[in-house]
Every structure is written in C-alpha cells, then in structure tokens.
Amino acid sequence: MTIDGEYTFRAPRETVWELLQDPDVLVKALPGAKKLERIGEDRFDGIMRVGVGPVTAAEWSVNVQLKDLVPPESYAMQMEGKSPLGFTRGTGTVTLVAEDEATTRMHYHGDVQLGGKIAGVGQRLLDQVAKLLARQGLEALNREVEARLAR
C-alpha cells in the first residue's frame, strides 16, 4: 500500500521540524497513539490503538527509526508494527518546503506492507483509513503548531 500526500502548516519550517522530532507532541497528535518514547538517537518505540472497518481496534507496538535526517528539510523513516491482528512494515519519506517565512508545505510518501489477519480483512478499507489517519494526525499537529506560535 502506498500513501502519498501533502499538507500545509501555517508555521515556519524550523518550528514544524522541531515538532516532528518531539515524541511528546507526536503522541498527542497521532490518532490512537498511547505512548511514544525516544529509545535512542532517532529511534522511537510506541503503542498505538487502531481499528480498521470491521476489524476490532487492537494495540500495535510500533518501532520507528528515522534516517537520513537533513534538518530542517527532510528525513526518511523505517517503521515496524506488531499486534494480535498481524504485522506492518514500511518505509517513508517526509520533505518540508518553506513556502514563505510563515508557511511550510509537507510532502509525505510511504510504502506499507501488511501481514496476517489485518491483511485479510482490512485491505479494502486500508487506503481510506490510512489517508484519514494521516489527515487527522496532521491537522492535530497543525493545531499544536498554531497553539505554540500563539504563545
């Protein structure tokens, strides 16, 4: 499954970059995220609770490794997740472009593979769910950005 998209933040690029590296911010923004902690340089462990369509929500333990960091422009990541419903593995890239001093456009791309029960019953809906989750997460992040700038 491929997820592609872009999102515009009303904030300077450095601010957006900072937030994207802050697990405390991300855990609040990502839908279903219950825990996210830095376990090493550019490595994060987390727990997310996600359900897809008819599939009962389950807890996923997630490990994310950030790579090729070019602050404040871009980074790549490798992600692995496990749950009673199966596993997920994927890679992604995030690019931040400064449109102007107060606007940042984010491009994101992900290739995700799913296995186990989740692949067998959720596939039809996964595209939509993934897009929805991405959008919800980014909107929450944007609210956080704006709140920060307003302080």
Binding site: P54, Q113, L114, G115, G116, K117, A119, G120, V121, Q123, R124
Partner: peptide, 14 residues
Amino acid sequence: FDDSGQLLNASFMD
C-alpha cells in the same frame, strides 16, 4: 494473494 503471500480477501465481505 499479494506478492508476499498475504491473503487479501479472507472474509465473506470480500
């Protein structure tokens, strides 16, 4: 089945 051998329609919905 997808390329990794995952069955993609394992329910009566699909």
